[in-house]
């Protein structure tokens, strides 16, 4: 088991991609902190699944954009787990992905951008800042930030969302440069459209078909598809990679 005796924090892990990632870590023996915002019941369920999969799961509520809440979470991790080996910044602000109803640029306000930057970037920033002392206690720490393949190929221009995720990629590269000398790696995983998740539940079949048609691997991503690349980047299998973005979209984006 690759993550035996390792502790991993997955933010926004009560559902969707986050939950799939949490389960995958647990199946490799990890102790997984299942962070969530609102859905305690779902988070507890994921934590229970983690335990039954051979790891450990611990559901912890915290709004990742709330500095005080994140610090409190860091203190609890420090006291009760004593170590943190990887962080997966997966939480993001809800966004409706609908190519037919998306906002046009001239319909957007700066507030829309700011809201998404807060969701994607501030949460990651806050978690990284608060968890860094804990992460630094041991060598080989890893941070994995969830971006989107839209940063490289705006198939549909979700301006505010994709811009915020682009900022996240830039943030990650700078953080990688800063933390590299400390032996901590920072990378991004950039999924394409993932189905089913709460965010993609309403995506219409013709949209999916259109994406599938352009995707070399001929299907839409599942939440479980994200787990492999995330675990890879969190493990020492990728010990000489930092500041990278892995596109996990069946080959829609290459390079």
């Amino acid at each position: 088991m690759k993550f035996r005796d390792r502790t991993v924090l997955v933010t926004g892990a009560s559902r969707g991609i986050g939950a799939a990632i949490a389960r995958a870590f647990a199946a490799e023996g990890a102790t997984v902190v299942v962070n969530y915002l609102r859905n305690a019941e779902a988070a507890e369920w994921v934590a229970a699944e983690c335990r039954s999969l051979g790891g450990d799961g611990w559901a912890l509520q915290a709004d990742v954009t709330d500095d005080g809440a994140v610090r409190a979470m860091a203190d609890r991790l420090s006291d009760e787990l004593g170590r943190l080996d990887a962080i997966v910044n997966n939480a993001f602000r809800p966004y409706a992905f609908d190519p037919e109803k998306r906002a046009l640029f001239w319909d957007l306000e700066w507030g829309d951008y700011r809201s998404q930057v807060d969701g994607a970037l501030k949460g990651t920033f806050t978690v990284c800042r608060a968890m860094l002392p804990l992460l630094r206690r041991r060598p080989g720490g890893s941070i994995v930030n969830m971006a989107t393949d839209l940063v490289a190929r705006p198939t549909v221009p979700y301006h505010d969302y994709a811009t915020a995720k682009s900022a996240l990629v830039g943030f990650s590269r700078n953080l990688a440069a800063e933390l590299g000398p400390l032996g901590i790696r920072v990378n991004c995983v950039a999924p394409g459209l993932v189905y089913p998740t709460d965010a993609s539940r309403s995506t219409r079949e013709d949209v999916k078909d259109r994406i599938i048609a352009q995707t070399p691997l001929r299907r839409i991503a599942t939440p479980e598809d994200m787990a492999g690349p995330v675990l890879f980047l969190a493990s020492d299998w990728s010990r000489f990679m930092t500041g990278q973005t892995l596109y996990v979209d069946g080959g829609l984006v290459m390079g």
Binding site: G140, P181, L182, G183
Partner: peptide, 10 residues
């Protein structure tokens, strides 16, 4: 100390 650790790891 953190930088030193990182260098030793390398």
């Amino acid at each position: 100390a953190g930088y030193l650790a990182g260098e030793l790891a390398g």
